[in-house]
């Protein structure tokens, strides 16, 4: 198995609660892995710890031979990890296209020195990024909304926009927290199509999802979590019929 991203004995406690309890798993490059489990299983906590938003209490995360535990969130993002949030996070009071442009990595104009002395280069990169952002918005079908405020988009469109930001960041590992929750059926198909495109582009997707149909049809592999532990993993069919999974949902 390709050990592209390896998580070993990851722990995170909130007071007496073990949100992550010696959680171990690994992901291969280009996989689409579903992370499922009942509420409070630690799925979002796992994303938060992986992304550096929460410090781990123990364990290790190795991503492309880099240790992620102990790194600051912006460093981890620079290594090529992007995520979406369950409660939508966007810069609502600026236009849609600015949200996408924000997500590009390695922008020289984000630093003061090039801003002061290499303005031409900054401008050139900026207009290049503007074109790229328009292309991405076209791909997700938000082109005509480019100059509207992000706040003015519908819920489903905002979910698409967060996905557009992930595409713009060009990260290799995408952590998607319930990308389909609360999205209309028509929009679900659009989002799924974008996810397939990302997979075909060689990205690794880790997706928290509850929709059984999506789990069965879209994921290469499923990891089932409960109480901060990995209960089982395997092909969607195997996990679906695992007695421990059924028990966890019924208890």
């Amino acid at each position: 198995m390709n050990q592209w991203l390896t998580v070993e004995n990851l722990s995170k406690r909130f007071g007496g609660i073990h949100a992550l309890d010696s959680f171990s798993c690994h992901f291969g490059q280009g996989e689409v892995v579903g992370l499922i489990g009942p509420n409070g299983a630690g799925k979002t906590t796992f994303f938060n710890v992986l992304g550096g938003m929460l410090p781990a209490d123990g364990g290790s995360i190795r991503f492309c031979s880099k240790q992620l535990v102990g790194q600051s969130p912006h460093r981890i993002a620079h290594f090529g990890v992007a995520r979406t949030f369950q409660n939508l996070r966007l810069i609502r009071q600026v236009p849609v296209i600015e949200n996408v442009m924000l997500a590009f990595r390695h922008q020289s104009g984000e630093h003061l020195v090039p801003l002061a002395i290499r303005w031409k280069k900054v401008r050139a990169q900026e207009s290049e990024n503007h074109e790229k952002a328009l292309a991405i918005l076209k791909k997700v079908g938000l082109l005509e909304k480019a100059d509207d405020l992000a706040d003015a988009l519908s819920y489903g469109q905002q979910k698409l926009l967060t996905l557009a930001c992930c595409i713009a960041s060009d990260a290799d590992l995408l952590l998607l927290d319930e990308p389909l929750a609360g999205v209309s059926p028509v929009m679900i198909d659009i989002v799924l199509e974008k996810l397939r495109e990302l997979k075909n582009a060689g990205k690794t997707l880790v997706v928290i999802e509850h929709n059984l149909e999506v789990i069965m049809n879209e994921f290469d592999r499923v990891i089932f979590m409960d109480s901060g532990r990995k209960v089982c993993e395997g092909l969607p069919d195997e996990v679906r019929n695992d007695p421990r999974v059924i028990e966890a949902y019924l208890k």
Partner: peptide
């Protein structure tokens, strides 16, 4: 120069949602 630049865009992102800016790799 500052406000009409990628730097200014990050400032606005920090105003609206710090965690989002962090998750996009902004220091």
């Amino acid at each position: 120069r500052i406000t009409h630049s990628p730097y200014g865009r990050v400032l606005q992102a920090i105003r609206e949602d710090e965690d989002f800016a962090l998750s996009l790799g902004k220091n």
